[in-house]
C-alpha cells in the first residue's frame, strides 16, 4: 500500500529543550492513524513539521513520495487552540476563501461548499457569521474547511473538542467515510480515546519527544487483552481482603465495581490456582472473565510504563 506520510528520523530542539527526537513512522494512504501523547509530548511539533510549518533540525518528511516542503497542496490541517477561521465571515464565506487560497475555484466550488455544509448540518447557519455560532459548530466549520481544500491528507488536532454527542457521531462517520470511500489519509491527534478506538487503524504514542508505541490498533489491544481477568465475588469484604493479600504470586486490584477484583495473569492455567486460593479463603467466586480492554487503558498503561521506566 502506498505511503501517504513518511516521517524519517526527525528531531527538533527549541533552544535547549528537545521537543522531539528521532521520530519515525509512516501512514498508509486511505487509512486513519492517531498520534497520541500527554500534553507537551511533542505531538504538535510533529504535526506542524509534517505541515512544513516547523522545520525539523534533522530528518526528512515525505508526503505522497515528495519532500513535504514541496507538497503542502496535499495537506489540510486543523490546529487545536486557534480559531482556524475568520470569525466575521459566514461558514460559506470562510469555505470560499480557504478554497481560494488553495488555488481552487470554478463553478463547482459553490455546489461543493453547499454539499459540505449540508453534510455537517450547517446549511441553516451558512449565512450566520462564525462568531455567532456555538463552539461545536465552529469546530464543524473548521473541519469542513479542511475538507473543502480537497487534499489527499487531512491532519486534525482535537477534532471532536466541544462537540455534542450527535455531532461527535457525525464526525466519526465522516472520518470513516473520508478514509474508506474517498481514500483520504487522516492523521488524528486527540485525547478522546473512544474516537481513536472507533476509527483508527494505527496508533503512534509519543511521550517526552520520542515514540513509545507504534502499532496497529488490533495489535495494541491484543497486547493488553491477554493480561487482565476480572474476578467477581459475592462479598465486598473479600475484595478488600484479597487486595491486601501479599502471600501469593498474584496481585489483585480493586476495580470500579465494588464486587470485582482485577488480576493480571500470563498463563490461562493460573485461573485454577486463583480459584484454589479463593476457596482456601472461603470466598465464593461468582464469575471469572477476561476483562474487555478499552483503548484508554492501553494508552494509560503504555504512558505509565514509560514514566516508571
Amino acid at each position: 500500500m502506498m505511503k501517504a506520510i513518511e516521517v524519517m528520523n526527525i528531531s527538533k530542539k527549541y533552544n535547549e529543550v528537545q521537543a522531539i527526537k528521532d521520530i519515525s513512522f509512516s501512514v498508509e494512504k486511505g487509512s486513519i492513524c492517531a498520534i497520541l501523547g500527554p500534553n507537551g509530548s511533542g505531538k504538535t511539533t510533529t504535526i506542524k513539521s509534517i505541515c512544513n510549518l516547523i522545520m525539523p533540525d534533522q530528518g526528512e518528511i515525505k508526503i505522497m513520495g515528495k519532500s513535504n516542503r514541496k507538497a503542502s497542496k496535499h495537506i489540510a490541517a486543523l490546529f487545536e487552540g486557534t480559531r482556524n477561521l475568520y470569525w466575521r465571515l459566514t461558514p460559506k464565506e470562510n469555505l470560499k476563501y480557504f478554497a481560494g487560497i488553495r488555488g481552487l475555484g470554478g463553478k463547482k466550488i459553490d455546489e461543493e461548499i453547499d454539499m459540505l455544509l449540508d453534510k455537517f448540518n450547517l446549511s441553516d447557519k451558512k449565512n450566520v457569521t462564525v462568531n455567532e455560532l456555538s463552539r461545536g459548530m465552529k469546530q464543524k466549520v473548521a473541519i469542513a474547511m479542511t475538507m473543502i481544500c480537497n487534499t489527499d491528507i487531512i491532519l486534525l488536532d482535537e477534532p471532536t473538542l466541544g462537540l455534542d454527542v450527535q455531532s461527535f457521531i457525525e464526525i466519526k462517520e465522516i472520518l470513516l467515510d473520508l478514509a474508506k470511500n474517498m481514500n483520504k489519509t487522516i492523521l488524528l491527534s486527540t485525547h478522546d480515546m473512544s474516537l481513536v478506538q472507533d476509527v483508527c487503524e494505527k496508533v503512534i504514542i509519543i511521550n517526552k519527544g520520542h515514540i513509545i508505541a507504534k502499532d496497529s490498533m488490533g495489535n495494541l489491544m491484543d497486547m493488553f487483552k491477554s493480561k487482565t481477568y476480572e474476578v467477581r465475588v459475592q462479598d465486598t469484604q473479600a475484595v478488600v481482603l484479597m487486595e491486601n493479600y501479599s502471600q501469593s504470586k498474584f496481585e489483585f486490584f480493586a476495580s470500579k465495581d465494588v464486587n470485582i477484583l482485577e488480576v493480571d495473569i500470563h498463563n490461562p492455567e493460573d485461573i485454577y490456582e486463583i480459584t484454589e486460593l479463593f476457596m482456601s479463603k472461603d470466598i465464593l467466586i461468582e464469575e471469572i472473565k477476561l476483562k474487555e480492554v478499552n483503548f484508554e487503558r492501553v494508552y494509560l498503561d503504555l504512558t505509565r510504563e514509560e514514566v516508571s521506566a
Binding site: 510549518l53 503542502s72 490541517a77 490546529f79 475568520y86
Partner: peptide
C-alpha cells in the same frame, strides 16, 4: 493571532502570493 496564518502558509499558492 487567529491561527489563520498557518492555514494561509499551507496554501499551495504560497504565503507571499496570498
Amino acid at each position: 493571532n487567529k491561527g489563520t496564518l498557518e492555514q494561509i502558509s499551507m496554501s499551495g499558492l504560497g504565503l507571499n502570493k496570498v
